[in-house]
């Protein structure tokens, strides 16, 4: 496994990213802009599930409106995240925060596209307010922990 990370860090593209003084910073910066869009498209639905707004709209309608922005920003996160990983592959292999981030990201993605999707797209009233709120809080908690671990990769590795 470790060898695989060493190989990735040695790819010419990875080394080019590392050697440039501006590619990595700019990719990081746009990773954060994408994070803003991602957080927004997640919060729109979670705030609705929490009963904190848009209560005149069915949850499913809010979720359908947010969906292209959720998918789009996830795509932008991957596009700006992969080059960062490539150039720091060996460092990230050793970072507990990178490992936590990837694990939490996987859980957050699975949760978002199974449980949360089921609850958000169900007709209002099928699931009780308690379940909706719990799903929203788990969603916010999972995605926040992904972001926190992402930021921590840069501090303690």
């Amino acid at each position: 496994m470790e060898q695989y990370f060493i190989d990735i860090a040695a790819w010419p593209v990875s080394r080019a990213i590392n050697e440039s003084s501006w590619i990595f910073p700019l990719v990081q910066a746009f990773h954060l802009v994408s994070l803003g869009f991602l957080a927004g498209s997640i919060l729109m639905v979670d705030l609705r599930l929490l009963g904190k707004g848009f209560s005149k709209q069915p949850t499913a309608r809010v979720a359908r409106d947010a969906r292209p922005w959720l998918i789009g920003s996830l795509f932008a996160m991957v596009v700006t995240g992969v080059p960062q990983f490539m150039s720091l592959a060996t460092k990230e292999y050793d970072s507990p925060y990178f490992r936590w981030k990837m694990l939490l990201l996987l859980i957050a993605l699975i949760f978002t596209f199974t449980v949360r999707k089921l609850v958000a797209y169900a007709p209002d009233g099928r699931f009780g307010g308690g379940i909706s709120k719990l799903v929203a809080l788990v969603s916010i908690g999972l995605w926040t922990s992904v972001a926190i671990n992402g930021r921590l990769i840069g501090f303690f590795s």
Partner: peptide
């Protein structure tokens, strides 16, 4: 984290 909350709600 606060940026996520702020930018998210502003951008939407």
């Amino acid at each position: 984290v606060s940026m996520c909350m702020f930018a998210g709600t502003i951008l939407m």
